[in-house]
């Protein structure tokens, strides 16, 4: 289907890729929702697809699951074509879908039995793990939003799938349950399960993902480990404090301007603001200690993945990182 970079495609298929996507395109009517996406997910990786609404994240994973047929491009999931080999592939994938439900009168235990591809007996353990042990006989309609999400996660993990796709995993969950879900995903990673996470919750992506892929308007803007994306795209770290010794303040601020990692020092009356990269936080702290002027009101704002994504979404479209990725794969072949 796709004639782009054949060497790279072969290279990707020969490595331990669980998901290989090249040149994926999908239109709904005349609207192009996925526009030339290249994506690799390696075995055991937790990869997050992030981006605003309408970025094409869900459509991309629906094509990967074989729920939608792409208009163009090449897809391989666990060595199979999701469109052609859907029935062989789906038992190997655990899916937690966005905007889907179960029959209202289906009970929790019946749902587990229905969705268990094999009688592995892991359903009971998963229900207990996610706090649904007491709700076995409850109808789906009577579950709260959080309980429904947890049940969907249980169903996605039944039968120990090799690839788990989680779309808006923690939507509607309270903080304690969210931590529980995070622990479950970490456990999956430790067991070597590959996880593809689609999320608006950038806290999830930052906490769980080895690599995130930022999308906008159906295209990939950038990808990499969360910390790398933050370094590349987030605003600077910001350090704020009050100036205690007014006489010595000018000298202190002058010294801070020369500290490693500091980009800018601003003074607003008795308040100082220092901007720089993450390393500047430590260097500024050390300088304050050296000058015996550690302020009581010191505050530090560390850039987050959310800052990076906002910068990416606001900025001009970045070059596709997949070119670099293909070069790496070709290099690995040599």
């Amino acid at each position: 289907m796709c004639s782009r970079r054949p060497t790279a495609i072969v290279a990707a298929m020969l490595t331990n890729n669980v998901v290989t996507v090249r040149g994926l395109q999908k239109c709904y009517g005349r609207r192009k929702v996925v526009d030339g996406v290249d994506l690799d997910v390696l075995e055991g990786e937790v990869v997050g697809l992030i981006g605003a609404n309408g970025a094409g994240k869900t459509t991309t994973v629906e094509c990967i699951q074989g729920l939608r047929r792409p208009d163009a491009g090449m897809l391989r999931v666990l060595g199979l074509d999701p469109a052609r080999d859907a029935e062989r592939l789906r038992p190997l994938i655990g899916s937690q879908l966005q905007d889907s439900a179960l029959p209202d009168r289906l009970r929790v235990a019946e749902a587990v039995e229905l969705f268990s591809p094999r009688r592995t007996g892991d359903g009971e353990a998963l229900l207990e793990q996610f706090g649904l042990g007491e709700r076995r006989r409850s109808a789906f309609a009577s579950l709260s939003g959080g309980e429904r999400q947890r049940l969907f996660l249980v169903l996605a993990l039944l039968g120990r799938p090799r690839l788990v796709i989680l779309d808006e995993l923690t939507q509607g969950l309270d903080p304690s349950v969210r931590r529980n879900v995070w622990a479950a995903v970490s456990q999956l990673r430790n067991e070597g399960t590959t996880v593809l996470l689609v999320t608006h919750e950038l806290g999830d992506a930052e906490a769980l993902c080895d690599r995130v892929v930022a999308m906008r308007a159906g295209r990939i803007l950038d990808s990499g480990p969360p910390a790398e994306l933050v370094d590349r795209h987030a605003r600077r770290a910001t350090i704020r404090f009050g100036l205690q010794d007014v006489a010595a303040s000018d000298a202190l601020l002058e010294e801070l301007r020369d500290v490693a990692g500091v980009d800018l020092v601003e003074r607003d009356g008795q308040r100082a603001t220092v901007y720089g990269d993450r390393s500047a936080i430590a260097h500024v702290g050390a300088a304050l200690v050296r000058n015996c002027s550690v302020p009581a009101d010191l505050s530090v704002q560390i850039p987050t993945l959310e800052d990076a994504l906002l910068d990416l979404l606001d900025g001009p479209e970045a070059p596709l990182p997949s070119d670099n990725h293909d070069q790496r794969l070709i290099g690995a072949m040599r």
């Binding site: 699951q65 729920l67 789906r90 994938i93 899916s95 889907s100 179960l102 029959p103 969705f115």
Partner: peptide
């Protein structure tokens, strides 16, 4: 009702032919 609420998508994603 199943189509409207995404129940069929869930069945399809779970490998039901």
């Amino acid at each position: 009702s199943y189509r409207e609420r995404g129940v069929l998508r869930r069945f399809a994603a779970a490998g039901f032919p």
